[in-house]
């Protein structure tokens, strides 16, 4: 019995050394999304999957995935045709997060009560964020666009070292040639978030109840 306990303990510590830190959970998966861990082949991503640091994630055409980090509920939404590596280093109180985006479109909703660092890195740029909401469109041919939704994100071009702060309503562009600029966001360029636009017309039902308990419902339909 003691031998089993010792073996179990050894296996436990071994798993801690060899295994990556568990850092996030997949909360929504639409279409064909796969992940790759270590040297194993790609596997289909399912809702509830727990990401370890170093997992590679790929969304195919028409697919979508959302994941949430377990330390501060920061969320990452990944649109179709996107490839990225999710990495994070766990400490006692926080996870230092780093997303290596290898092309595609993601939305980062970083909690204002974020405890660790949150960095998104592409081949061209580095976006360092704290308490913000933004889209990052990474195109290997042209560069990276950051569309600010809320808060502030610092966008830095890795080639030139220049950086700008992107705020709500502003789009920053970091190009392959080292340039970096910002301009007012054209609403048409904001990608659609499947978690916000799914379904048919939305309905708001307001239920009224009078003193006798009689109920009537007001239904408001909207897009």
């Amino acid at each position: 019995m003691q031998l089993i306990r010792k073996i179990s303990l050894c296996l436990f510590f071994l798993s801690l050394v060899l295994g990556g830190d568990k850092i996030a959970v997949a909360t929504k998966v639409i279409g064909s999304v796969s992940y790759t861990r270590g040297k194993a082949g790609p596997k289909i991503l399912k809702k509830g999957h727990i990401f370890e640091s170093g997992d590679f994630l790929k969304t195919d055409k028409g697919s979508f995935a959302a994941l949430i980090f377990i330390d501060d509920k920061s969320a990452l939404k990944i649109k179709e045709n996107t490839e990225l590596v999710i990495a994070g280093k766990r400490s006692a109180k926080a996870i230092a997060k780093e997303i290596n985006l290898d092309g595609g479109i993601i939305r980062a909703q970083v909690n204002k009560q974020q405890r660790g660092d949150f960095i998104i890195r592409t081949s061209v740029s580095v976006a360092s964020v704290k308490g913000t909401d933004f889209w990052l469109i990474s195109d290997k041919k042209t560069g990276d666009s950051v569309i600010g939704i809320d808060g502030v994100v610092t966008l830095m071009n890795q080639l030139s070292g220049e950086s700008i702060d992107i705020t709500s309503g502003i789009t920053g562009f970091s190009s392959q040639d080292g340039g970096i600029q910002s301009f007012t966001t054209d609403p048409k360029t904001i990608p659609e978030d499947p978690t916000a636009t799914e379904g048919d017309d939305k309905k708001l039902e307001i239920e009224f109840k009078d003193a006798s308990g009689k109920k009537k419902t007001l239904i408001i339909k909207y897009k």
């Binding site: 929504k28 639409i30 809702k47 509830g48």
Partner: peptide, 10 residues
């Protein structure tokens, strides 16, 4: 598609 019960004991 979004229905998942998840909580963190971090």
């Amino acid at each position: 598609n979004s229905l998942l019960v998840a909580a963190s004991f971090f």
